[in-house]
Simulated scan of single mutants.
Amino acid sequence: MTSATANVPAQDSGIASASVNSAQQVGGSIGSAAFNTVAASAAAAFHGGTRAAAVHGFTTAIWVPLAALVLAAAATAVLAGPGSSRPTRPGTRTNWGSRHPRPGTTPDRDPHRVRVGARPQGPTA
């Protein structure tokens, strides 16, 4: 979701998120129907008992989506490449692993960072 909406202007972020969600829902429905068709076709083409045909259909329906997943992962790795999902809007994190999300802050100057095990500062009762 973050990669799909990273470079969208703030005023359009809601519709972009809704579009991605809708695409995921439709894709899941189409994928489920396609793999059900693969299972039914493989079971119908199998020459053997009914139970063996069902097992063959389900086995085929597992391997076909697995192959599609591997191909999609390879295509994503080639097309997206490293660093292509970095946000460019001001005020967003540009280094996903950064410990200092806001420019100009360090751990000791960051007012939003809580140090574990630190003693409270100021007057004590």
Rank of each mutant, 00 (worst) to 15 (best):
T50N: 06
N95I: 09
T5R: 05
W63Q: 10
G57C: 03
A52D: 14
V70I: 14
I15H: 11
R99H: 10
G14Y: 10
F35Q: 08
R119T: 14
S17N: 12
I62Y: 03
A125G: 13
P9L: 06
W96E: 13
P120Q: 08
T88F: 02
H56S: 08
V116G: 04
A53G: 07
A80R: 11
T106K: 10
G31E: 02
R109Y: 06
A125C: 13
G117P: 03
V78L: 14
T60A: 14
A33F: 11
G31V: 05
H56W: 08
T2I: 08
S29M: 15
P123F: 06
D12V: 09
W63A: 13
T92E: 13
G122D: 04
V70S: 05
G83T: 05
A23M: 15
Q24R: 11
R51F: 01
S13G: 02
P111A: 07
L69P: 00
R99Y: 11
T50C: 02
N21F: 12
A61V: 01
R115N: 09
L79Y: 11
A39L: 03
N21A: 15
A34M: 15
V116K: 09
L71K: 00
D110F: 03
V64A: 07
G81N: 03
Q121F: 14
N7V: 01
P103G: 03
A68K: 06
G57R: 01
A34K: 04
T106M: 09
D12L: 07
R102V: 14
A52F: 01
A44M: 09
S32C: 09
P107E: 12
Q24I: 15
F46H: 09
D110Y: 00
V64E: 00
A6S: 07
T60D: 01
T94C: 03
P111R: 07
V20E: 04
G48H: 02
L79F: 12
T59C: 02
A73L: 14
R86G: 01
T2V: 11
H47N: 13
T76H: 07
S19L: 12
P107Y: 08
T94W: 03
